[in-house]
């Protein structure tokens, strides 16, 4: 860990989205499950795969779907030298616009070839189906140059497909601002470092890249106490995806002594029902060997035993 620059950490955004389909896409996906490609008949008489839900010219719903071939002609293509996660192949391949037999408008899908010189516009290709089809565009694993291999084996009849699951998994490099980084590094030393806004002179913990009142970075460092006052709080009793703390727990705004803004943390060491506005609390630090550059170095706050703070002392912080 360096002491300069900003702190970075990986951040994942992952969810399997459940998409309901509506009539047009349901019929299309049900077709794919049965290894049958269906095209939509557009107002201008052309056939398009995938079938659009709404006509590109009249904007009316597309209701007529017709079976089309699972072979077709490459209309345009591009080489994918460095595939990204989730793409149909994990080695270099081509994306192509493929006009399937019986259609007029191209389908965008992958073509599995070893090198760019093995694909050309005008080339005939055919669908390679997944062993097990579920009713998704990925039931077509990819297309391959047409050869003498076996013809498509129809899939099982199966039930109609009304939805798909679309996993979205993204990885980000998260960076804290320089001001926040100072704060998190301070935590690694067991200190709570705030900064004062040079204009309004309020002490922000954590410090800010821009004082939200004055629009300038906070500057002068101020070490604040690891004890303070609960301004307000809630008792969380609801489970949710990604939750990391067992319920019920008290999530509270703690106004640290010396700070001009409260921050959120956990209150333990007291029955949730006994937590109250004005409660005086102190930080309970994790064992030092567990410390990192994170607010989680403070396991939680617990009562100090001091008398409650007077409402007047924190009422402007609500």
């Amino acid at each position: 860990m360096t002491d300069v620059g900003t702190l970075h950490a990986p951040m994942k955004v992952e969810f399997d989205y459940t998409r309901s389909l509506g009539p047009t896409l349901s019929e299309f996906m049900t077709g794919l499950k049965r290894r049958q490609i269906l095209g939509g008949k557009l107002a201008d008489g052309t056939v398009a795969v995938p079938p659009p839900e709404f006509d590109p010219q009249t904007y009316d719903p597309i209701t007529e779907l017709v079976p089309v071939g699972s072979e077709g002609v490459v209309q345009s293509w591009v080489w994918v030298p460095e595939p990204v996660p989730g793409q149909p192949l994990d080695k270099p391949f081509a994306f192509a616009q493929i006009v399937l037999d019986g259609t007029d408008r191209p389908l965008l899908h992958a073509v599995a070839v070893e090198a760019p010189d093995q694909i050309a516009t005008g080339q005939r290709v055919r669908a390679v189906w997944a062993e097990e089809t579920v009713g998704a565009i990925t039931d077509i694993r990819w297309f391959e140059p047409e050869g003498d291999g076996p013809a498509t084996v129809p899939g099982p009849e199966g039930e109609a497909v009304n939805g798909i699951i679309a996993p979205v998994n993204l990885s980000y490099d998260y960076a804290a601002s320089p001001e926040e980084s100072k704060f998190f590094r301070g935590l690694a030393d067991g200190k709570l470092i705030g900064q004062r806004c040079p204009v309004c002179e309020k002490v922000y913990v954590p410090p800010r890249g821009a004082c939200p009142v004055d629009g300038v970075p906070t500057t002068d460092e101020v070490e604040v106490a690891d004890r303070g006052t609960v301004t307000t709080f809630c008792i969380v009793n609801v489970p949710f995806t990604g939750q990391q703390i067992p319920i019920p727990y008290v999530s509270a705004y703690v106004l640290l002594d010396g700070a001009d803004i409260a921050f959120l943390h956990l209150i333990l060491g007291i029955d949730a029902a006994d937590v109250r506005m004005g409660l005086r609390v102190k930080a309970v630090w994790k064992p030092r060997d567990e410390w990192g550059t994170t607010i989680a170095n403070i396991s939680h706050f617990e009562p100090t035993g001091e008398p409650d703070a007077d409402f007047e002392t924190y009422k402007v912080h609500l």
Binding site: M11, V236, G242, I245, S251, L264, T294
Partner: peptide
């Protein structure tokens, strides 16, 4: 409520 690095995940929606 996607956890943000360095921050305590006490938020609950």
């Amino acid at each position: 409520s996607i956890p943000v690095p360095f921050i305590m995940p006490v938020h609950a929606g």
